[in-house]
């Protein structure tokens, strides 16, 4: 047990230099990128009308003239003091911005995760049980199609069909004024979550299927069968439970991407989440916001891979933590 603890601790400590390196690289990259936040505050045509001297003064005011290394250190120092900084475009504290954005992205991600996990594992296991049947092939093909259609394309078609032609669901957005109750809210969530969820389903399905097939070949399943247990019991209790492990791991790996938000889905459905904000921030060179979102998504990726490591070690006794 001491070893596990040590391992966990070591892994956690290792994350610190990694985060430093990554954030440094991002900051550097942003610095190398031509243009700065000031040049994105105005439309190109209007830039022609603004006195270059005023722009220079603004740069000085926003601290953009310091060497980037100094600015990085400043940023880091602020961060260590718990100050996330302020968005350059509107001066709003970034912690407030994140508090607005995270719930939206999380909600969408979890809904999509739920859809893909339930749909994926059920279909995957069904097709494993009926391996080689017409149904299995059909499901595989359906899964393939789900994963092979470009997301934005699928999303647009869904908007045209369900929102415009049928008028069942709103075209996008997350809330409307005066909206009360979860049901009204759900209407906004259904389309984006389904599109995102369906595109993720095929992966889960594939995993669940092969892992179920794997499990069904295991000796203890054969033993269970030989003991004369009813088929459904063998499948459900013995097969299903065990074969879900890799699915859990897969979900673990997905989570960080889901935290970062799906830029494409959020753009199409006007979902006010992290992904959307991140894209705007990066293209507008809104340093402080970019850095904080990047920091969180990097942390999420590192944490997830760390947790998956530990999870697999616990679930599979053959893997040793070293």
């Amino acid at each position: 047990m001491r070893n596990t603890l040590q391992y966990v601790l070591k892994k956690l400590l290792l994350m610190i230099p990694m985060v430093l390196v990554i954030t440094f690289l991002i900051y550097w990259g942003l610095d190398l990128t031509p243009g700065d936040p000031i040049s994105y505050m105005f439309s190109p045509d209007q830039l022609a009308n603004i006195d270059p001297q005023k722009l220079a003064e603004m740069r000085e005011l926003y601290g953009l003239n310091d060497p980037f290394f100094i600015r990085y250190l400043k940023w880091l120092w602020q961060l260590l003091q718990g100050n996330f900084g302020y968005s350059i475009t509107n001066g709003v504290a970034i912690k407030d911005l994140l508090a607005q954005l995270f719930p939206a992205t999380l909600e969408l991600s979890l809904a999509a995760l739920l859809i893909s996990t339930v749909l994926g594992s059920v279909l995957g296991i069904l097709s494993a049980l009926k391996k080689g049947s017409v149904g299995d092939n059909l499901l595989t093909v359906a899964g393939m199609i789900g994963v092979s259609i470009p997301q934005f394309f699928f999303g647009m078609v869904c908007i045209v069909v369900f929102a415009l032609n049928l008028g069942w669901l709103p075209i996008g957005g997350r809330t409307a004024p005066g909206m009360t109750g979860a049901l009204a809210h759900l209407k906004f969530l259904i389309l984006p979550a389904s599109v995102l969820g369906i595109s993720l389903t095929a992966g889960v399905m594939r995993y669940a299927r092969s892992s179920m097939l794997d499990t069904m070949n295991k000796d203890y399943i054969k033993t269970a069968r030989a003991k004369g247990l009813p088929e459904w019991r063998v499948n459900l209790v013995h097969g299903f439970r065990v074969s879900l492990t890799p699915v859990v791991v897969l979900i673990g790996f997905r989570l960080p991407t889901l935290i970062g938000g799906s830029v494409v889905i959020e753009t199409i459905f006007q979902w006010p989440g992290i992904g959307n904000a991140f894209k705007t921030a990066v293209t507008g060179q809104n340093y402080p916001l970019v850095m904080m979102i990047a920091l969180f998504s990097v942390l999420a990726v590192l944490m997830a891979s760390f947790l998956v490591d530990i999870l697999t070690a616990i679930l599979d006794p053959r893997v040793k933590l070293e």
Binding site: F84, L98, A99, L106, I259, A304, L307
Partner: peptide, 14 residues
Amino acid sequence: MTGMTACGGSGSAP
């Protein structure tokens, strides 16, 4: 793991 992601939000919430 699920909680951690939520913490991202709560940690930064005012």
